[in-house]
């Protein structure tokens, strides 16, 4: 079969990047950036998830069709978050109601 065989070096680099990302997330959480803490931790998590998808899951070497299907999951997720929150945010009767 002609599936792409990645070099072990790529796997070890991705692994190193994932470990560094985890340590960075942990250290960043100890520093008080206020609400910006959320942005930092989610940005690192997105980078880590992308590395796993592209290299460990091999989407980088997969067909265009696999790219589209994989991406569609996250597009639908954004629609779920976007439309639901646009409803709650535009009403203003929930925030801090239970604290």
């Amino acid at each position: 079969m002609s599936g792409h065989i990645a070099s072990t070096r790529i796997y070890y680099w991705v692994f190193a990047a994932l470990i560094i990302g985890t340590v960075l997330t942990y250290l960043a959480a100890l520093v008080d950036f206020g609400a910006f803490n959320n942005v930092v931790m989610l940005a690192i998590a997105l980078v880590k998830a992308s590395l796993v998808i592209l290299f460990f899951m091999g989407v980088r070497w997969s067909s265009r069709l696999t790219w589209v299907v994989a991406a569609s999951g996250f597009v639908w997720l954004l629609i779920l978050f976007g439309i639901t929150m646009s409803d709650y945010l535009s009403r203003g009767w929930m925030v801090g109601s239970l604290r």
Binding site: W76, L77, T84, M85, M94, G96, L98
Partner: peptide, 20 residues
């Protein structure tokens, strides 16, 4: 992704309602 997505949505909504 959508299965877990529902739970992440619930997390987002309830965290927004109860941040502290």
């Amino acid at each position: 992704i959508m299965f877990f997505g529902g739970l992440f949505m619930a997390y987002l909504m309830y965290r927004w309602a109860n941040p502290t």
